[in-house]
């Protein structure tokens, strides 16, 4: 019964991650790229580039979310998948930088252009992810050292 529950949990979280890492960012960028009524155009025709990287890393993050959330609580397997997922999350965030999504430039027709740089913000989020990586490494060590105690507690439940 526990295994089925874990599988359902895994699929549920995969769905949530797909929505947050692929669907919402893609809808946001599609709306931005197709803004109408304002005299602005995208300077870079790199919609395909942004879409590709967000989808690629979004799928990886969502895939690892399944393995993480379908693993038993406090298991070494869960710890390792959680660590890999955080590292891929970092790459996902970094993909915003190298796909051009962190440096948004609009052409204001017959006037000039304006650009918005979010690179600094992404670096701050990367710092937070670094702290999360420390936490996940700590988890893996904790789950390994206290393996027997965790098993005993699981049996009692």
């Amino acid at each position: 019964m526990g295994a089925v529950k874990n599988m359902v949990r895994g699929f549920l979280f995969t769905g949530i991650y797909v929505v947050f890492t692929i669907v919402i960012p893609l809808i946001t960028f599609t709306l931005l790229f197709n803004i109408e009524g304002l005299p602005i155009e995208w300077e870079k025709q790199d919609q395909q580039n942004i879409t590709f990287w967000l989808t690629a890393f979004g799928l990886l993050v969502s895939g690892f979310a399944f393995f993480k959330y379908s693993s038993p609580k406090q298991s070494i397997r869960k710890g390792i998948f959680a660590l890999i997922q955080v590292i891929i999350n970092c790459l996902y965030l970094w993909s915003y930088r190298f796909s051009g999504a962190a440096e948004i430039t609009f052409i204001i027709v017959d006037y000039g252009f304006f650009s918005l740089s979010l690179a600094q913000m992404i670096l701050i989020y990367m710092g937070i992810y670094f702290l999360t990586i420390i936490l996940k490494v700590y988890d893996v060590i904790d789950f390994t050292i206290n393996r027997e105690k965790i098993r005993e507690n699981r049996m009692k439940e």
Partner: peptide, 21 residues
């Protein structure tokens, strides 16, 4: 003239520049 205004906000997290050509 080309006229550019650039600035940082949100404690330096966002940078914005507007250019009139």
């Amino acid at each position: 003239a080309n006229f550019t205004v650039s600035l940082d906000y949100s404690i330096g997290m966002h940078s914005l520049s507007i250019t009139i050509l």
